[in-house]
């Protein structure tokens, strides 16, 4: 596994650059990861990222967009505005959780 230095911390990432260790994540890392893909985190971004982290911890898998919208409380339209084009992948990248695996 490659190791990357993000926001001054050494973290393990997969071949694409997604973090692989849940516990290595922190908010400074999230800010740096977001900046990597041109996103400046605002309040709504944090709401999504925190939901993703909590839900992943509880469910053992990354929620799909529908769940982020229905359970996390951020509507689909807004998710596409906050994380343009590929919201599911981008939000999981920033939240330090695996890419979602489901179909819907």
């Amino acid at each position: 596994m490659p190791v990357a230095t993000i926001a001054g911390a050494e973290v393990q990432v997969d071949d694409e650059g997604f973090m692989t260790e849940y516990e290595e994540w922190n908010e400074d890392i999230a800010v740096a990861l977001a900046a990597n893909i041109g996103i400046e985190l605002g309040e709504s971004h944090w709401q999504v990222i925190k939901f993703l982290r909590e839900d992943y911890k509880e469910q053992g898998e990354t929620p799909m967009l529908r769940r982020v919208s229905n359970v996390g409380g951020v509507p689909t339209k807004q998710l596409f505005q906050l994380f343009p084009k590929k919201p599911a992948k981008k939000m999981s990248y920033i939240a330090g959780v695996p890419k979602p695996q489901g179909c819907v």
């Binding site: 490659p2 990357a4 990597n36 084009k85 590929k86 981008k90 990248y93």
Partner: peptide, 8 residues
Amino acid sequence: SLVPDFGD
């Protein structure tokens, strides 16, 4: 850089 290519 190990930044995923989101193909934007």
